[in-house]
């Protein structure tokens, strides 16, 4: 009974808000209704630590990347150096309702749960992205996962494919890979590759005849490289 009356009140507030349009006459006694999500990423790779995960809940119209289009500088930073701050900043500027970073690197076989809360809306979508740190510019992620039909308590169980940011050639050379395989350079503003996003073709590694590669057999991967659990808790 009490629950019901709360719902009714908030529905009235919603209608009032709609009628008021963009006016600033909001009712300060009503806090906005929030959608709360738990995003869990599990690293399924052999030996590719994943950089701190970028989690963005946004309006459906926002697109963080697209096959055949050039990476943003934020995506380039994330994919070459594992730094998601510019990527999250771009999302906040464009449309983001909630933009969070994981707390640290997710090593193979481990998981991290990241919480994100956003004001309730009708066309919410989720984007996640994380670098495979023992590569030149590979990242795992999904852009624009539809959250509009996810009810409280519902869960999406997805897998993350691997993309190539297209901003750094996959030369696998010493000094070019930021992860523990090399300890080399992360972000570099040069774009010496195809300069469009595609699916990744995998790494060659020195076990496969490419003797100049600093990567070895354990750094090879196939898609998918991670599990993504999306749970709506409120």
């Amino acid at each position: 009974m009490k629950l019901k009356s709360i719902v009714n009140i908030s529905a009235v507030a919603l209608v009032a808000g709609l009628m008021a349009g963009c006016s600033d006459s909001s009712n300060s006694t009503n806090t906005p209704e929030m959608n709360d999500y738990e995003i869990t990423v599990t690293n399924l790779s052999s030996n590719q630590p994943l950089s701190p995960v970028a989690v963005v809940v946004h309006e459906a119209s926002y697109n963080a990347w697209e096959i055949g289009s050039a990476s943003t500088v934020g995506l380039e930073n994330l994919a070459e150096g594992g730094d998601n701050s510019t990527f999250l900043g771009e999302a906040r500027t464009a449309s983001s309702l909630g933009a969070e970073s994981g707390t640290g690197v997710i090593i193979p076989g481990s998981s991290e749960l990241i919480e994100v809360s956003v004001q309730r809306g009708s066309d919410l979508a989720l984007t996640v992205a994380t670098m495979l740190v023992n590569t030149n510019d590979a990242f795992a992620g999904r852009a624009g996962i539809d959250l509009s039909s996810l009810s409280i308590g519902d869960e999406l169980n997805l897998r993350l494919p691997i993309y190539d940011a297209g901003t750094e050639g996959n030369n696998e050379l010493a000094g070019t890979i930021p992860g523990p395989a090399d300890g080399g350079e992360g972000f570099n503003s040069d774009r010496d590759d195809v300069n469009v996003v595609s699916r990744h073709s995998g790494v060659v590694s020195n076990i496969d005849g490419y003797t100049d590669s600093v990567l070895e057999q354990s750094h090879r991967f196939d898609s998918p490289v991670a599990q993504l659990l999306v749970r709506r808790v409120n």
Partner: peptide
């Protein structure tokens, strides 16, 4: 070498 295609460029993972 054994191949005329470049292992760093002309590989792929599914889906294509």
């Amino acid at each position: 070498g054994v191949s005329d295609v470049d292992s760093r460029i002309h590989r792929w993972l599914n889906p294509v």
